[in-house]
Computed example of a mutant assay.
Amino acid sequence: MDYIFVPNVELAIQFNQGFKTALVSSLEYIADELKDNPEFGIVLRTITSKIKKSTWIHPAVYGYYYELVFAAEAQAWDTFANTLQALQSLNIDLDIKPQDIEILDLFDSSLDSHRQLYLSHLNNESANQIDCDPLTKNQFQQFQELWQSSQESLIHFFPELLAEIQQLIRQLVLAVPSQSSGLHFHGASFFSLWGLLFLNPEPLTTQFDLLLTLAHEAGHSVLFGYSMNEPLLRNQDTELYESPLRQERRPMAGVYHATFVTARMHLLASRVLKTGWAESLGSSNTAVKETCQDLFHTFEEGLNTVKRFAQLTDSGASILARAESYMYQKK
Rank of each mutant, 00 (worst) to 15 (best):
G41R: 00
N82S: 15
G276F: 09
L34M: 10
Y3M: 07
L117Q: 03
I51N: 05
Q75G: 10
F296G: 02
R308S: 15
A71K: 03
R170Q: 15
I4N: 07
F158K: 01
F157P: 11
L204R: 09
M252E: 05
L146E: 03
W277G: 01
W277R: 01
G254R: 01
H184Y: 15
H297L: 14
A163H: 01
K274L: 11
R264S: 11
K137A: 13
Q247I: 05
H216Q: 03
P59C: 02
Q179W: 10
D36R: 13
L94A: 04
V6H: 13
A163M: 08
R234P: 15
Y226S: 05
K52F: 11
Q207M: 08
H156L: 15
E248P: 10
T305H: 08
G18I: 01
R249G: 11
T206K: 04
I319P: 09
L196S: 02
L11W: 04
E279N: 06
N37S: 12
V176A: 14
S284L: 02
A317I: 03
M265E: 15
L211V: 04
C132N: 05
S54A: 13
T291K: 07
Q207F: 04
S109D: 15
Q247A: 09
S150T: 02
E164K: 01
M228Y: 05
F5L: 08
D112W: 10
F208T: 01
L320H: 04
F143R: 00
A188D: 05
A81T: 08
T205Y: 11
K97M: 15
S181R: 00
G182N: 07
D36K: 11
K331S: 12
D100F: 06
K53R: 15
L87T: 01
E239N: 02
L295A: 01
E67W: 08
F296R: 05
Y226C: 03
G316W: 03
V6S: 14
S280A: 12
S153Q: 13
S227Q: 02
F224S: 00
A188Q: 09
L154C: 06
H121V: 00
I4C: 08
A76I: 03
L233H: 09
T291V: 13
T213E: 10
I130Y: 10
D93R: 01
K274P: 09
E73I: 10
M265C: 11
I165M: 05
F185N: 11
E164L: 04
T79C: 07
F191Y: 13
I92K: 05
S25T: 12
Q151D: 03
L135T: 03
L303K: 03
E67V: 12
E160R: 06
H186T: 10
A60I: 00
E67N: 11
V6D: 15
L119E: 06
F260Q: 01
I319W: 08
V61R: 00
E39P: 07
S227D: 10
P7A: 00
G182Q: 07
F40H: 14
P134A: 04
V176C: 14
T21R: 13
S26V: 05
G187D: 06
T83R: 04
L161W: 02
Q85N: 15
Y65C: 00
R170E: 05
Q85T: 14
F224P: 10
L245N: 07
L267E: 05
L94K: 03
S120G: 09
